[in-house]
Amino acid sequence: MAGREQFETDLTHMKEAIIALSKSAEDALYKAIDALFNQDLDLANNVISHDNLIDEQEHTINDQTILLMAKQQPVATDLRRLVISLQITADIERMADNAKNIAKSTLHLGEDHRLIIHPRIKEMRDMAMNMNQTAIKAFQYEDISIAGKLSDMDNEVDRLYETIIHDILNETATNPEKIQYVMQMAFSARYIERFADHITNIGESILYLVKGKSYKLN
């Protein structure tokens, strides 16, 4: 196989691995919120232990990226493609960390907290997951018009986060004895908001890849 052909194959494998990693982080968020709503401590523990696997996958992708840089000495778009691979995998790893933190909050809350989880947290999760699918599509097709949508989507997540926090603060005013539980719920909303921020960073990486210049989406 010729040098360029091998490089293209390696790049394709790397892209697939990054997309798979991103889906793992999304899956972790889905499960973490399910565990939060259902007080499912087993599922929360499952999310936490699975995070190690995501960390390992991140390291593997990074090692392969660095190896490709050394072997191929890429320039222009090829170089940017490898640089953003490192950035995107770092963002995905942080996204998974946020999912893990939600799972930890679920463990803190325990099985009998008797707290009603704010129903719109699930809506917020679904918005973040939708953002992730958009980012994957933009990354897969290197499509900046799709990546550009992430800015508005992130703003919607931020607005919902503010609404949820506002409601939660009202709850603590009326039920001060529940404050430690309510805080965990507020943290969980915050973790989803951070999750979405990292997806926006991925959008910025895609813009950098295609345009060769830095842009801000959030």
């Binding site: 550009g148 210049k213 842009y215």
Partner: peptide
């Protein structure tokens, strides 16, 4: 792309 703004930072 209306939503993307070029970064101000040098």
């Amino acid at each position: 792309m209306a939503t993307a703004t070029k970064t101000q930072q040098a």
